[in-house]
């Protein structure tokens, strides 16, 4: 505290206790009011841009509603949901989305952890360079990443086939985007490249929270690098790992850009977000599209619920009260 403030508080001191108490509760009240004045606008905007649309989507999903025939709108209860859920395409797309989610998150977790360790342990002169490099994929537009990977593998403009033609199965004639698994692999590669930096930064923050006394003690006790990793470091940053995995899972689950650019859903690579887009925006079937949107939202809720209840991921706790 500065000298002026102590002077000031001395001169305030002689006032009666009663008055001070009244002032305090007045201040608490005005603080509450100010709190909501300041936080309220952001809160209202957030609700307006998400809660309102999802409620609207739910309402629309109860109608047979096509923009190509807007006069034929009829209330049909949950028939749209039955249509979607009894369509094998929904289940196929859900499967593809889940494959992408599980594979990318696992690889990203391993790769991201390695990158986090590198950034954490790097000698000072390299630290800035490494972090700058890592941030490039983070900042790049996903669509740009998708094109970069697409053109590298594409049968016409690509060079990957020519570089790796010594590997059995790869030849200049291999068309990566003509079949399910090859195209899905490139889609996942682009997704992993672009989003691993994010997960590695979350893990880096987690690493910083592992008490160094613990790792040092383990080292003194003769624990190998692997033992320290498995018994000391990973258990102590479990919370950070869980949060990183949950965030990335939810993010991977809504994958859209890479698939849209590379295959647009061809050869069975369609994901749920693309199905929703195709139904509402391309085919203008707002009723059906809304049902898919609501179902996607429900999927996200289920993932969150499972993570929080089963794996005890404490999201709020990551930034709980001081």
């Amino acid at each position: 505290m500065s000298t002026t403030s102590t002077k000031e508080s001395k001169s305030v001191a002689p006032t009666t206790r009663q008055r001070r108490r009244a002032n305090l509760s007045d201040r608490a009240k005005s603080e509450r009011r100010l709190g909501w004045y300041l936080a309220g606008p952001a809160f209202i905007v957030m609700l307006a841009v998400t809660l309102y649309p999802i409620l609207q989507a739910f309402w629309d999903s109860l109608f047979s509603l096509r923009l190509t025939a807007p006069d034929d709108t009829t209330f049909i209860w949950f028939a749209n949901y039955i249509t979607v859920l009894s369509d094998p395409i929904w289940w196929r797309d859900l499967g593809v989305t889940l494959i992408i989610t599980v594979v990318t998150v696992i690889i990203e977790l391993i790769l991201g952890f390695a990158l986090a360790l590198v950034m954490d342990k790097a000698i000072k002169s390299l630290r800035g360079l490494l972090r700058t490099a890592i941030l490039v994929p983070y900042g790049i537009i996903t669509v740009v990443s998708a094109y970069a990977w697409f053109y590298a593998f594409d049968i016409n403009s690509g060079y990957i086939n020519h570089w790796f033609d010594w590997i059995p199965g790869i030849s200049p004639d291999l068309n990566w985007f003509a079949e399910f698994w090859p195209s899905l692999s490139v889609i996942m590669a682009s997704e992993i490249w672009k989003t691993t930096p994010f997960i590695s930064l979350l893990l880096l923050a987690g690493l910083a929270q592992v008490p160094s006394e613990l790792t040092e003690a383990a080292q003194v006790d003769g624990a190998t690098w692997w033992e320290r990793m498995r018994k000391v470091i990973v258990p102590n940053m479990k919370a950070a790992i869980m949060v990183a995995v949950l965030f990335r899972t939810l993010d991977a689950f809504r994958i859209f850009d890479n698939v849209f650019i590379m295959t647009n859903g061809a050869h069975g690579t369609e994901v749920l977000s693309l199905l929703a887009y195709r139904t509402s925006i391309s085919r203008l079937e707002i009723g059906l599209g809304s049902a898919i949107s609501v179902l996607l939202f429900v999927c996200v809720l289920i993932i969150c619920f499972v993570a929080i209840k089963l794996f005890k991921v404490d999201l709020a706790g990551t930034q709980g009260d001081k």
Partner: peptide
């Protein structure tokens, strides 16, 4: 804070259909 968290994990495509209309 919880609302901010919920909004950040919201599937974007779910917002698009109603907004489009």
């Amino acid at each position: 804070l919880t609302t901010a968290l919920a909004v950040s994990i919201f599937p974007v495509i779910s917002i698009v259909t109603p907004l489009f209309n």
